[in-house]
Amino acid sequence: MNLLLLNPHQHLHGNLWRLDERQCRHVRDILGLAEGDTCRAGILGGGMGTARIESIKNNEITIYLEVDTHCEPPPPLSLLLALPRPKMLKRILIDATSLGIKRIVLINSWKVDKSYWQTPNLKAGLLREKMLLGLEQARDTTLPELVLAPRFKPFVEDDLDSWAGPGRRILAHPGDHPAMPVDLTEPVTLAIGPEGGWTDYEVAMLQRKGFACHSFGVRILRVETALPALVGRLMRLP
């Protein structure tokens, strides 16, 4: 945890905030802070600053926070991602959030096992929890917009254009395609398929919506490896 990320309900009055149980354990057991010590904190959806430990009483910690910094603008990257395996979904969401991606669609694909959509990991509270961990890791305060699209064709036909908006549309797909571009500064929507790859039908539908296929080399990577590698190549991260 590189940032104490505070929710509005933790606000007491003025610049005083009360930490939750997990944050208290981190401050006390990991950081080893005492009254008068300082650390970084931020307000969800707001700014950041240096927090001073005001009091530690009865396992409750109160901090004084004066906001003096706002987050760097995120990379102009939107992510269209075939729903990963449940065990990896949590890790991928944390990584995507820590990379600064603010718009994510988890979409179905023919090669996505139907059982993936039944996993408890797709509960809104659990998804939000993982994205909060990503924000704490990267010292960010803005939650991504997350959309679930369990039906591929209706989303692509009816919603994809308005969701993606203007800018380049790139489809990461193995094969004899142009190399993945580097260090883009314009808005980009990146589509990453399941580990088995998009089907020909899915590729054709995405191409009709303006996606261009690009290759990332001959190696077939797991999604959790491909995502940070692709984002690092495509974008100059702040």
Rank of each mutant, 00 (worst) to 15 (best):
P74F: 11
C213F: 02
V105S: 08
L83W: 06
R139A: 11
I92N: 00
T141R: 04
A179C: 06
L106M: 06
T185Y: 04
P75H: 01
N2E: 10
D29F: 09
G36H: 07
L126Y: 10
V156A: 06
D176P: 00
Q10E: 12
S78L: 03
E224P: 00
D161S: 15
P238E: 03
G49Q: 08
S55E: 15
G32K: 12
L146D: 01
A191E: 07
E66V: 12
S109M: 09
C39M: 14
G100R: 08
A41Q: 02
L79T: 09
D158I: 04
N58S: 15
G210M: 13
E129S: 13
L31C: 05
R139T: 09
K114V: 10
V188N: 11
I30R: 08
T62A: 08
T199L: 13
P166Q: 11
N58A: 15
L135C: 05
T62P: 00
R22V: 07
E54V: 12
T189M: 12
D37T: 04
R85M: 03
R236A: 12
E186P: 02
L93I: 06
V223Q: 13
L93P: 05
L133R: 09
L89G: 03
D29I: 02
R18K: 08
V231P: 03
Q10V: 05
M88Y: 01
L184D: 08
L77K: 13
V182M: 12
D68L: 11
R52Y: 01
T97V: 09
G42M: 14
D113P: 04
N15C: 08
M180F: 06
P228L: 04
D161E: 14
P120V: 11
E224A: 00
C24A: 12
F155D: 08
I170Q: 07
A204E: 14
D95S: 05
L81D: 03
G100A: 04
I104W: 01
L106E: 00
S162R: 13
P194H: 03
Q207E: 15
L127Y: 05
P228Q: 03
A164K: 02
M205L: 15
D159P: 02
N58I: 06
E66Y: 04
Q118V: 07
H9M: 00
R139E: 14
A124Q: 13
E224Y: 03
R233W: 10
F216Y: 04
G193T: 11
T38M: 09
G217I: 10
E195I: 06
L143S: 03
E157T: 02
L106D: 01
S115A: 12
R28E: 14
P228S: 01
G217E: 06
S55T: 15
H9K: 04
T97R: 03
C213R: 08
L81T: 05
I220M: 13
Q118N: 14
V188A: 08
V27Q: 06
A96I: 12
R85Q: 11
L221P: 03
K209F: 00
N58F: 13
I101A: 06
I63F: 11
E21Y: 03
G197S: 09
L126G: 00
G232Q: 05
S162H: 14
K57L: 14
G49A: 09
L6T: 04
P150Q: 05
A82T: 05
T142M: 11
R22Y: 00
R169H: 07
